[in-house]
Protein backbone atom coordinates (compact mmCIF):
# COMPACT_ATOMS: atom_id res chain seq x y z
CA UNK A 1 0.00 0.00 0.00
CA UNK A 2 1.22 3.43 -0.92
CA UNK A 3 0.39 5.06 2.41
CA UNK A 4 2.45 2.52 4.35
CA UNK A 5 5.40 3.54 2.22
CA UNK A 6 4.84 7.20 3.06
CA UNK A 7 4.66 6.54 6.79
CA UNK A 8 7.79 4.38 6.72
CA UNK A 9 9.53 7.11 4.73
CA UNK A 10 8.44 9.72 7.26
CA UNK A 11 9.67 7.68 10.22
CA UNK A 12 12.95 7.08 8.39
CA UNK A 13 13.11 10.80 7.71
CA UNK A 14 12.57 11.54 11.40
CA UNK A 15 15.36 9.17 12.38
CA UNK A 16 17.59 10.59 9.67
CA UNK A 17 16.85 14.13 10.75
CA UNK A 18 17.65 13.30 14.35
CA UNK A 19 21.01 11.84 13.30
CA UNK A 20 21.79 14.73 10.96
CA UNK A 21 21.08 17.48 13.45
CA UNK A 22 21.76 15.41 16.53
CA UNK A 23 22.81 18.19 18.86
CA UNK A 24 19.83 20.38 17.97
CA UNK A 25 17.21 17.65 18.23
CA UNK A 26 18.49 16.24 21.49
CA UNK A 27 17.44 19.49 23.08
CA UNK A 28 13.77 19.50 22.23
CA UNK A 29 12.82 16.02 20.96
CA UNK A 30 12.50 14.37 24.41
CA UNK A 31 9.99 16.98 25.55
CA UNK A 32 7.92 16.53 22.41
CA UNK A 33 7.99 12.74 22.76
CA UNK A 34 6.86 13.06 26.39
CA UNK A 35 4.00 15.14 24.96
CA UNK A 36 3.27 12.33 22.49
CA UNK A 37 2.73 9.94 25.42
CA UNK A 38 0.14 12.32 26.90
CA UNK A 39 -1.54 12.71 23.51
CA UNK A 40 -1.77 8.95 22.99
CA UNK A 41 -3.05 8.46 26.54
CA UNK A 42 -5.81 11.04 26.14
CA UNK A 43 -6.63 9.85 22.61
CA UNK A 44 -6.99 6.20 23.64
CA UNK A 45 -9.32 6.97 26.54
CA UNK A 46 -11.45 9.38 24.53
CA UNK A 47 -11.72 6.95 21.59
CA UNK A 48 -13.16 4.39 24.01
CA UNK A 49 -15.68 6.91 25.40
CA UNK A 50 -16.50 8.17 21.90
CA UNK A 51 -17.27 4.68 20.55
CA UNK A 52 -19.40 3.79 23.57
CA UNK A 53 -21.42 7.02 23.36
CA UNK A 54 -21.82 6.73 19.58
CA UNK A 55 -23.35 3.27 19.81
CA UNK A 56 -25.54 4.05 22.83
CA UNK A 57 -26.87 7.38 21.50
CA UNK A 58 -27.16 6.07 17.93
CA UNK A 59 -29.22 3.05 18.97
CA UNK A 60 -31.15 5.22 21.42
CA UNK A 61 -32.09 7.64 18.68
CA UNK A 62 -32.99 4.94 16.16
CA UNK A 63 -34.83 2.40 18.33
CA UNK A 64 -35.31 3.87 21.82
CA UNK A 65 -38.63 4.57 23.49
CA UNK A 66 -39.76 8.21 23.25
CA UNK A 67 -37.95 9.57 26.37
CA UNK A 68 -34.71 7.79 25.41
CA UNK A 69 -35.03 9.12 21.87
CA UNK A 70 -35.57 12.71 23.06
CA UNK A 71 -32.63 12.43 25.40
CA UNK A 72 -30.42 11.15 22.57
CA UNK A 73 -31.57 13.93 20.22
CA UNK A 74 -30.93 16.55 22.90
CA UNK A 75 -27.45 15.17 23.58
CA UNK A 76 -26.59 14.99 19.86
CA UNK A 77 -27.84 18.49 19.03
CA UNK A 78 -26.22 20.19 22.03
CA UNK A 79 -22.79 18.65 21.55
CA UNK A 80 -22.78 18.98 17.76
CA UNK A 81 -23.79 22.63 18.07
CA UNK A 82 -21.12 23.85 20.46
CA UNK A 83 -17.43 24.25 19.88
CA UNK A 84 -15.13 21.60 21.38
CA UNK A 85 -12.84 24.19 22.93
CA UNK A 86 -15.77 25.87 24.70
CA UNK A 87 -16.89 22.48 26.04
CA UNK A 88 -13.38 21.74 27.31
CA UNK A 89 -13.20 25.07 29.11
CA UNK A 90 -16.65 24.56 30.49
CA UNK A 91 -15.71 21.12 31.83
CA UNK A 92 -12.57 22.41 33.45
CA UNK A 93 -13.52 25.86 34.75
CA UNK A 94 -17.30 25.77 35.24
CA UNK A 95 -17.89 22.20 36.44
CA UNK A 96 -16.18 22.95 39.80
CA UNK A 97 -18.90 25.58 40.35
CA UNK A 98 -21.40 22.73 40.32
CA UNK A 99 -19.24 20.82 42.79
CA UNK A 100 -17.66 18.45 40.25
CA UNK A 101 -13.88 18.76 40.21
CA UNK A 102 -12.36 17.06 37.18
CA UNK A 103 -8.69 16.31 36.70
CA UNK A 104 -7.22 17.72 33.46
CA UNK A 105 -7.16 14.27 31.86
CA UNK A 106 -10.75 13.57 32.91
CA UNK A 107 -11.93 16.95 31.59
CA UNK A 108 -10.13 16.42 28.29
CA UNK A 109 -11.37 12.87 27.80
CA UNK A 110 -14.91 13.74 28.82
CA UNK A 111 -15.07 16.84 26.61
CA UNK A 112 -13.63 15.16 23.52
CA UNK A 113 -15.56 11.93 24.04
CA UNK A 114 -18.89 13.71 24.51
CA UNK A 115 -18.35 15.99 21.53
CA UNK A 116 -17.30 13.26 19.11
CA UNK A 117 -19.84 10.80 20.47
CA UNK A 118 -22.55 13.16 19.22
CA UNK A 119 -21.11 13.06 15.70
CA UNK A 120 -20.56 9.30 15.91
CA UNK A 121 -24.15 8.73 16.99
CA UNK A 122 -25.32 10.14 13.66
CA UNK A 123 -22.95 7.77 11.81
CA UNK A 124 -24.30 4.81 13.80
CA UNK A 125 -27.89 5.87 13.17
CA UNK A 126 -27.22 6.18 9.44
CA UNK A 127 -25.60 2.73 9.37
CA UNK A 128 -28.54 1.15 11.22
CA UNK A 129 -30.93 2.75 8.72
CA UNK A 130 -28.84 1.42 5.82
CA UNK A 131 -29.34 -2.24 6.79
CA UNK A 132 -31.98 -3.54 4.34
CA UNK A 133 -35.49 -3.65 5.80
CA UNK A 134 -35.94 -7.22 4.58
CA UNK A 135 -33.40 -8.35 7.17
CA UNK A 136 -35.54 -6.99 10.01
CA UNK A 137 -38.70 -8.41 8.48
CA UNK A 138 -37.09 -11.83 8.13
CA UNK A 139 -36.14 -11.87 11.84
CA UNK A 140 -39.73 -10.95 12.73
CA UNK A 141 -40.99 -13.76 10.49
CA UNK A 142 -38.58 -16.13 12.29
CA UNK A 143 -39.95 -14.93 15.66
CA UNK A 144 -36.58 -13.71 16.97
CA UNK A 145 -36.59 -11.60 20.12
CA UNK A 146 -35.79 -7.89 19.69
CA UNK A 147 -32.48 -8.33 21.52
CA UNK A 148 -31.34 -11.22 19.32
CA UNK A 149 -32.49 -9.39 16.21
CA UNK A 150 -30.25 -6.49 17.20
CA UNK A 151 -27.17 -8.44 18.31
CA UNK A 152 -27.21 -11.24 15.74
CA UNK A 153 -28.65 -9.68 12.57
CA UNK A 154 -28.84 -5.87 12.45
CA UNK A 155 -25.73 -4.73 14.36
CA UNK A 156 -23.20 -7.04 12.65
CA UNK A 157 -24.30 -5.71 9.26
CA UNK A 158 -24.47 -2.11 10.47
CA UNK A 159 -20.94 -2.33 11.92
CA UNK A 160 -19.54 -3.01 8.44
CA UNK A 161 -21.31 0.10 7.14
CA UNK A 162 -20.40 2.41 10.03
CA UNK A 163 -16.66 1.64 10.20
CA UNK A 164 -15.46 4.06 7.47
CA UNK A 165 -17.41 6.94 9.05
CA UNK A 166 -16.19 6.10 12.55
CA UNK A 167 -12.58 5.79 11.35
CA UNK A 168 -12.79 9.28 9.83
CA UNK A 169 -14.16 10.61 13.11
CA UNK A 170 -11.40 8.81 15.04
CA UNK A 171 -8.77 10.57 12.93
CA UNK A 172 -10.55 13.87 13.61
CA UNK A 173 -10.52 12.96 17.31
CA UNK A 174 -6.77 12.30 17.35
CA UNK A 175 -6.28 15.72 15.77
CA UNK A 176 -8.67 17.30 18.25
CA UNK A 177 -6.55 16.11 21.19
CA UNK A 178 -4.30 19.06 20.29
CA UNK A 179 -6.85 21.18 22.18
CA UNK A 180 -6.27 19.53 25.57
CA UNK A 181 -3.37 21.88 26.18
CA UNK A 182 -6.16 24.36 26.99
CA UNK A 183 -6.91 22.41 30.17
CA UNK A 184 -3.25 22.47 31.29
CA UNK A 185 -2.23 19.08 29.85
CA UNK A 186 1.24 19.09 28.28
CA UNK A 187 0.57 17.19 25.07
CA UNK A 188 2.55 17.33 21.79
CA UNK A 189 1.19 20.75 20.82
CA UNK A 190 1.86 22.27 24.23
CA UNK A 191 5.38 20.84 24.26
CA UNK A 192 6.01 22.16 20.75
CA UNK A 193 4.93 25.69 21.65
CA UNK A 194 6.94 25.61 24.86
CA UNK A 195 10.09 24.28 23.16
CA UNK A 196 9.65 26.84 20.41
CA UNK A 197 9.62 29.64 22.95
CA UNK A 198 12.77 28.22 24.53
CA UNK A 199 14.81 27.45 21.41
CA UNK A 200 13.23 29.42 18.51
CA UNK A 201 13.66 26.55 16.06
CA UNK A 202 10.20 26.98 14.59
CA UNK A 203 10.60 25.03 11.35
CA UNK A 204 12.21 21.92 12.89
CA UNK A 205 9.95 21.75 15.94
CA UNK A 206 6.69 22.24 14.09
CA UNK A 207 7.65 20.00 11.16
CA UNK A 208 8.28 17.20 13.63
CA UNK A 209 5.01 17.98 15.42
CA UNK A 210 3.04 17.88 12.17
CA UNK A 211 4.71 14.62 11.16
CA UNK A 212 3.97 13.02 14.54
CA UNK A 213 0.27 13.83 14.15
CA UNK A 214 0.37 12.63 10.54
CA UNK A 215 1.84 9.29 11.63
CA UNK A 216 -0.74 8.90 14.42
CA UNK A 217 -3.53 9.57 11.90
CA UNK A 218 -2.07 7.00 9.48
CA UNK A 219 -1.95 4.36 12.23
CA UNK A 220 -5.64 4.92 12.89
CA UNK A 221 -6.31 4.66 9.15
CA UNK A 222 -4.47 1.30 8.85
CA UNK A 223 -6.31 -0.04 11.87
CA UNK A 224 -9.58 1.11 10.34
CA UNK A 225 -8.81 -0.53 7.00
CA UNK A 226 -7.99 -3.82 8.77
CA UNK A 227 -11.22 -3.64 10.81
CA UNK A 228 -13.22 -2.88 7.68
CA UNK A 229 -11.79 -5.96 5.94
CA UNK A 230 -12.60 -8.09 8.97
CA UNK A 231 -16.20 -6.89 9.32
CA UNK A 232 -17.14 -6.92 5.63
CA UNK A 233 -16.04 -10.53 5.10
CA UNK A 234 -19.67 -11.60 4.80
CA UNK A 235 -20.05 -9.41 1.71
CA UNK A 236 -16.92 -10.75 0.02
CA UNK A 237 -17.98 -14.33 0.69
CA UNK A 238 -21.41 -13.77 -0.79
CA UNK A 239 -20.04 -12.19 -3.96
Amino acid sequence: MNRIGIVVALIAFLVGLSVATFAELRVFLPAILRGAVVTVHVATLSIALFLLLSVVAGIGRAYGAAPVRWLSVLYIEVFRGTSLLVILFWMFFVMPEFGLFLSPVAAGVLGIGLNFGAYGAEVVRGALAAVPRGQTEATIALNMSAFRRMTRIVLPQAVAIMIPGLVNLTIELVKATALVSAVTLSDITYAAVQQNQLHFRTVEIFSITLMLYYCLAQFVRFGGAALEDRFSRHRARRA
Partner: peptide
Protein backbone atom coordinates in the same frame (compact mmCIF):
# COMPACT_ATOMS: atom_id res chain seq x y z
CA UNK B 1 -3.44 14.76 2.66
CA UNK B 2 -0.90 16.29 5.04
CA UNK B 3 -3.03 19.34 5.85
CA UNK B 4 -6.06 17.12 6.45
CA UNK B 5 -4.17 14.69 8.68
CA UNK B 6 -2.69 17.31 11.03
CA UNK B 7 -4.46 19.38 13.69
CA UNK B 8 -5.59 22.88 12.79
CA UNK B 9 -4.23 24.18 16.10
CA UNK B 10 -0.68 23.09 15.22
CA UNK B 11 -1.01 24.74 11.82
CA UNK B 12 -2.17 27.98 13.45
CA UNK B 13 0.84 27.94 15.80
CA UNK B 14 3.15 27.05 12.92
CA UNK B 15 2.01 30.00 10.79
CA UNK B 16 1.95 32.28 13.83
CA UNK B 17 5.59 31.54 14.71
CA UNK B 18 6.91 30.89 11.20
Amino acid sequence: EVIRATPLLVQIFFLFFL
